[in-house]
Simulated assay, not measured.
Amino acid sequence: MFDTMTFTKIVGSLCGALLIFLLGKWAAETLYHVGGKHGEEVAVYVIEVEGGEAEEEVVAEVNFDTLLETADAGKGERVYGKCRACHKLEAGENAAGPYLYNVVGRDVGVADGFNYSGALNEVADVWTVENLYYFLEDPRGWAPGTSMGFAGLNKSEDRANLIAYLATFSE
Rank of each mutant, 00 (worst) to 15 (best):
residue 111 A to G: 09
residue 112 D to M: 11
residue 113 G to P: 02
residue 113 G to F: 06
residue 113 G to Y: 06
residue 114 F to L: 02
residue 114 F to K: 08
residue 115 N to A: 15
residue 116 Y to H: 15
residue 116 Y to A: 06
residue 117 S to W: 05
residue 117 S to P: 02
residue 118 G to Q: 09
residue 118 G to H: 11
residue 119 A to F: 00
residue 119 A to E: 08
residue 119 A to Y: 01
residue 120 L to N: 00
residue 121 N to C: 06
residue 121 N to K: 14
residue 121 N to R: 13
residue 121 N to P: 02
residue 122 E to M: 15
residue 123 V to N: 09
residue 123 V to P: 00
residue 123 V to A: 00
residue 123 V to L: 00
residue 124 A to V: 12
residue 124 A to W: 08
residue 124 A to N: 07
residue 125 D to Q: 14
residue 125 D to N: 05
residue 125 D to A: 14
residue 126 V to I: 10
residue 126 V to Y: 04
residue 127 W to P: 07
residue 127 W to A: 02
residue 128 T to M: 01
residue 128 T to S: 15
residue 128 T to Y: 04
residue 128 T to W: 06
residue 128 T to G: 09
residue 129 V to H: 01
residue 129 V to Q: 12
residue 129 V to C: 05
residue 129 V to Y: 03
residue 130 E to I: 08
residue 130 E to Q: 14
residue 130 E to T: 10
residue 131 N to D: 04
residue 132 L to D: 07
residue 133 Y to Q: 04
residue 133 Y to N: 10
residue 133 Y to R: 04
residue 133 Y to C: 03
residue 134 Y to T: 04
residue 134 Y to H: 07
residue 134 Y to W: 13
residue 134 Y to E: 03
residue 135 F to H: 10
residue 135 F to N: 01
residue 136 L to A: 08
residue 136 L to H: 09
residue 136 L to M: 13
residue 136 L to S: 04
residue 136 L to P: 01
residue 137 E to A: 09
residue 137 E to S: 03
residue 137 E to G: 00
residue 138 D to N: 12
residue 139 P to A: 11
residue 140 R to F: 01
residue 140 R to W: 04
residue 141 G to S: 10
residue 141 G to P: 05
residue 141 G to I: 07
residue 141 G to M: 02
residue 141 G to A: 14
residue 141 G to Y: 00
residue 142 W to V: 11
residue 143 A to L: 05
residue 144 P to A: 03
residue 144 P to M: 14
residue 144 P to G: 06
residue 145 G to I: 00
residue 145 G to Y: 00
residue 145 G to D: 03
residue 146 T to P: 00
residue 147 S to Y: 07
residue 148 M to C: 08
residue 148 M to W: 13
residue 149 G to H: 08
residue 149 G to S: 15
residue 150 F to P: 03
residue 151 A to H: 11
residue 151 A to M: 14
residue 152 G to W: 03
residue 152 G to E: 11
residue 152 G to T: 10
